[in-house]
Amino acid sequence: MDLPRIFTIRESSHRIHNPFTADKLATLGRALHLEPGIRALDLASGSGELLCTWARDHGITGTGVDISTVFTAGARARAAELGVADRVEFVHGDASGHVADVPVDLAACIGATWIGGGLDGTVELLARSLRPGGLMLIGEPFWRREPTDQETAEGCHASSPADFLALPELLGRFGDLGYDVVEMVLADQNSWDRYRAAQWLNLRSWLDRNPDDELAPQVRAELTTDPVRYARYEREYLGWGVFALMKR
C-alpha cells in the first residue's frame, strides 16, 4: 500500500502537497484561533506540515494518516526537526477508512477528497471522527473561470467541466450538506506557481540522476509538456482553497 513513485518524485522537495504556501498555511492557523491542546486528525496528511507547524505555533496535538511511506517518513522527520514529535504522530495507512478512536476537535482533509469518493463522502468520513461543535477543514479545487470546452477541463486534470464547482456553488454545496462555512483561505496564482513550478525542478533533477530508470520516459514526457499546459489551462482556470466548516 503506497503512492505510485511518480507522485513522490514530482513532489520530492515539497512540504505542502497542494497550491498553498507556508504563509497561507500560517494565515489559516491564525484565522482559526486555535487553542493549545486541541486534538486534530489530518487524513491524507502528506509530509505533515499542517500538524507540525500548528503544533509548534499553536500547541495543538494530533494524528496524521497517509498512504505514502515516503511522505509519512518525511512528516515524522519534520516533527522531530520542529521539536513536536511528542505532540503529533504520523501513521502509514489508508486514510479512506480511518476513523479516530476518540472524537477530535478538528478533522481535516486538505486536497484529497478522493479518499471519500468525492466531496460529499469525505465530509461524511471526517464527521465520523469529529466531536459535536468541532471544526472541519476541507481543501478543494474550484473553477476560477468555468471552462467552456472539454479540452480546457482536461488541461486542468478534470474529466469534464462538471468535475469541479465554481466558488459560489462550492460554498453553497457545503450548506447543502448541513455546514456553515466559517473561514476560508484561498490559493492565488503565486501559490499555484510555487506548487506546480517546483515540481518541474524536482522532475528534472530526478531525471538527470536516473536517466535509465523505467520511469524516465514518463518523467521526460511530463517535463516536456507540463509547463505549457499549466500556463494555458490550470493557472488561469483552476482555483483552490481550504474551507473551515461547522455543523449546523
Rank of each mutant, 00 (worst) to 15 (best):
W114D: 10
E49I: 05
A100P: 09
L34M: 11
T72N: 06
T63E: 14
R5L: 14
D66R: 08
F7Q: 11
G139W: 01
L125R: 13
P19F: 03
L50A: 14
A77S: 15
G48Q: 07
T72K: 05
D57H: 08
A80D: 13
D57I: 02
G116C: 03
L28M: 14
H58A: 07
L28T: 04
F90W: 05
H17P: 00
C109V: 00
A75G: 06
R76W: 00
D2V: 05
D120T: 10
G62H: 05
G83E: 10
H92W: 01
A79G: 10
T122E: 00
R76Y: 02
L34T: 02
D42A: 09
E124R: 14
V84F: 11
D94K: 03
H98M: 13
R5A: 15
I110T: 10
A107V: 02
F71P: 00
V65Y: 05
D105P: 12
A26M: 06
G29C: 04
A55W: 09
T61I: 08
L135A: 03
F90I: 02
R39G: 04
I110A: 07
G37I: 00
F71A: 13
A85F: 04
D42C: 06
W114C: 03
D23C: 06
S45M: 08
R10V: 09
R5D: 14
A22Y: 04
T63D: 04
L41R: 08
T61D: 11
R56F: 06
V88R: 07
P132R: 11
E89L: 06
I115C: 12
P36N: 10
D120K: 13
M136V: 09
W54R: 10
S12P: 02
A44D: 08
T61R: 14
G133S: 11
M1D: 12
G97V: 08
D66H: 05
T113S: 13
G48V: 01
D101M: 05
S13G: 11
L137R: 07
F20S: 03
L3M: 13
R39W: 09
V84M: 08
F7G: 00
P132K: 06
A127H: 13
E11N: 14
S47L: 00
L51N: 11
A95V: 02
H92Y: 00
L126A: 04
F71G: 01
T53P: 07
A127P: 09
M1Y: 11
S12L: 04
G29M: 08
F90V: 00
A40G: 09
